[in-house]
Amino acid sequence: MIQGLHVSHLLSLQMNRITYTTPPAPLLSQYEQLKEGTFCNETSVDRDCSTEFCECVHRLKVDLNDVVELVLIADGKHGMGNHPMHLHGHSFYVLGMERVNDTVDRSEIERLDSQGKLRRNVEFPVRKDTVIVPDGGYTIVRFKANNPGFWLFHCHIDFHMHLGMSMVLQVGEPRKMPLVPPGFPRCGNWAYSDDVTAPYDICRTNVATRTAMPAAVVLCLITQLLL
């Protein structure tokens, strides 16, 4: 909670104004049991997330072998500090990083980029899987999405991650992802129940295993005040 001017307001840490929620079943092994409405992103969410609270399994889909560039923006509001962002399943090249001001917003970064003022080092970039996004600034990363699967991308400050500063990067369609080993344990929602008909106990029904078989994104790391 925030004291003073914003008494009784809740501080939420988000990505593109969306709070990440854990899916009711593992994405890789039980994707077929999840409804499409479980997922969302800033283009599919059906409300104004600047004034309403938005939460879902926040997912960004890219095609296998796409070259993906992420422009990560930390707005710097409310003194939340820098964010160490970590991507599972891939490493990325850090092309640029700069603190612009005490606070910054997405429109300002997009304006600077359109004017060619976001410099990108493409000759000798550092390769990492975790990078700081400076408070009131931006970081630009780029990678080849050549590892199919569902990969978590999140702030590595634990309580920021658990408050919702996370998202899932889906690389490729499920049919192109590795098959689950035979006999792999199945699980349901993280709430135990003796009632086999409980609405969250979705994993006690056997489901047949499925058969085998450059993009640019701006992500704004947001500290939002919720009424």
Rank of each mutant, 00 (worst) to 15 (best):
N121Q: 13
K35E: 15
Y192E: 14
R142L: 12
H156M: 15
L70W: 15
V126N: 11
A74W: 02
N65G: 05
P181C: 00
I140K: 05
L221E: 06
T205R: 09
F39H: 00
P178Q: 03
R204V: 15
A215P: 03
H58P: 02
S193E: 04
P24G: 11
A212C: 07
L219S: 14
D63W: 01
W151N: 10
H160C: 11
T21P: 00
N101T: 07
D129K: 06
M1V: 14
P26R: 00
A191M: 11
K128M: 13
S44F: 00
H156I: 11
G164C: 02
L34D: 09
Q170C: 05
A208G: 10
A198Q: 06
L112T: 08
D102F: 00
L64Y: 05
G37M: 12
C49M: 07
V171H: 04
R111V: 07
V171E: 05
S107R: 12
H86D: 13
D102N: 13
F150T: 04
F150R: 05
L60A: 03
I157F: 01
N101I: 05
H88F: 06
S114D: 15
M1L: 15
S107Y: 05
D129L: 04
N41G: 02
L152C: 04
N41Y: 02
C54M: 03
Y20C: 06
V141D: 12
W151I: 03
P178W: 04
L60Y: 03
P185G: 08
E173G: 04
R127S: 15
E36C: 08
K176F: 07
F159L: 14
Y200V: 03
Y200S: 08
S91A: 12
M177P: 04
T211Q: 14
D75N: 14
G81E: 09
N189A: 11
I18T: 07
E32Q: 13
M80A: 14
P24F: 03
C220R: 01
